[in-house]
Amino acid sequence: MTRQKARLKNLGFCVAGIGFLMLLFMFFVTASWIGCEVKDVCKEAMFKYEGDRVEALIKLLEDDAADFRARNSAVWALGQLGDARALPAVKKHFKGYEKGTRCDRGAKLCQYELYKAVKLLEGGPNISAFVWR
């Protein structure tokens, strides 16, 4: 191998290695941030309702008097937690989701959020969960 080729290979490895590390770093930071948000939602739910975090989140989801934004956050957090106990409660509210439909998280329960939660609760892959669970 010529010296020029070897130098280029070395540079390629260096750039690729650093790029990969940056991506890994962004992934871990994002996962930590998701974990932090989930814990925050759980904490707020457990402050208002009794039971462990899943039970408290289900109670928040079922509470018609609660703010829609908080209930949507509860759906998201239940999906992230991936506890199968939450599946019936989430499925009960899931009416179906059409791709591209936008939802007003402050006005109603977001079907896209429910759809994502159902997928995760049914054992769908959650690549960031191992970082914070």
Binding site: S32, G35, C36
Partner: peptide
């Protein structure tokens, strides 16, 4: 959780 996450990010 926010402060803990900040610590984790610093660690990363």
């Amino acid at each position: 959780g926010g402060i803990e996450a900040l610590g984790t990010v610093f660690c990363y």
